[in-house]
């Protein structure tokens, strides 16, 4: 994962609540076995509407998505995070995220910045009145800034640290392999195993 400390860019307002991951990327795009190139599936159904924010010229270079509450609910598909990143987004700001989406984002370096809903409203009106306004998201300071406006955002310490350091989770865990081995050796022997296979 790349290190993420501060990002500054233009923002795109998405005035919708409960944006589920089926909207972020429909299931037909999930048949691929590759890890990149999902930008064509991002909001595929909604992008058919020329007025959809991503289609509007004034928001063409946006890298920060400002979304309504409960962004990323539903399916666990990490493709939703990949599609946002492949399209060019580095940050999604919302007042509430689906838990799995937020977890996936933290694993792959997309910042899911959780703010109060009034902050979302303020950013929406700032960006809509001036689409060229630059929004800065500062992981170190846990702040989102736009013009004179500054607000804090929520991020758990561990995810923040991993983003700042650009750390690979698996590598961290494997450094504690002795703990895993110790756990396995004292684990309840009654727990099921898939092998050898048994059938009805």
């Amino acid at each position: 994962m790349e290190k993420f400390s501060v990002h500054t860019g233009r923002a795109i307002p998405l005035r919708r609540s409960s944006v589920d991951t089926d909207q972020i990327i429909p299931s037909e795009y999930l048949k691929r076995v590759t890890r990149t190139g999902f930008e064509d599936g991002l909001f595929a159904a909604w992008r058919a509407d020329p007025e959809f924010p991503l289609n509007r010229e004034e928001y063409a270079d946006g890298t920060v998505l400002i979304a309504g509450p409960d962004f990323g609910i539903g399916s666990s598909r990490e493709h939703a995070v990949w599609a946002l990143q492949d399209y060019g987004f580095r940050v999604v700001v919302s007042s509430r995220f689906g838990d799995i989406f937020r977890g996936n984002a933290g694993k792959t370096g997309l910042l899911a910045a959780k703010v109060e809903q009034d902050v979302v409203e303020r950013l929406w009106s700032l960006v809509e009145s001036d689409p060229a306004v630059e929004v800065t998201v500062d992981v170190e300071a846990r702040e989102v800034r736009a013009g004179d406006f500054t607000a804090g955002f929520d991020i758990d310490d561990y995810t923040r640290w991993r983003l700042l350091e650009g750390l690979d989770d698996i590598g961290i865990t494997l450094s504690h392999e002795a703990d895993i081995t110790a756990y396995e050796s004292s684990r309840n022997s009654l727990k099921p195993r898939t092998l050898p296979a048994r059938s009805a």
Binding site: H79, I100, G103, D169, I170, T173, L174
Partner: peptide, 21 residues
């Protein structure tokens, strides 16, 4: 029992564990 993303899936395959708050 809970759903996970593909990065976490890789983590479980490699370590049989998951970091969870």
């Amino acid at each position: 029992a809970f759903g996970i993303g593909t990065s976490e899936l890789e983590h479980v395959l490699a370590t049989q564990t998951l970091p969870q708050s």
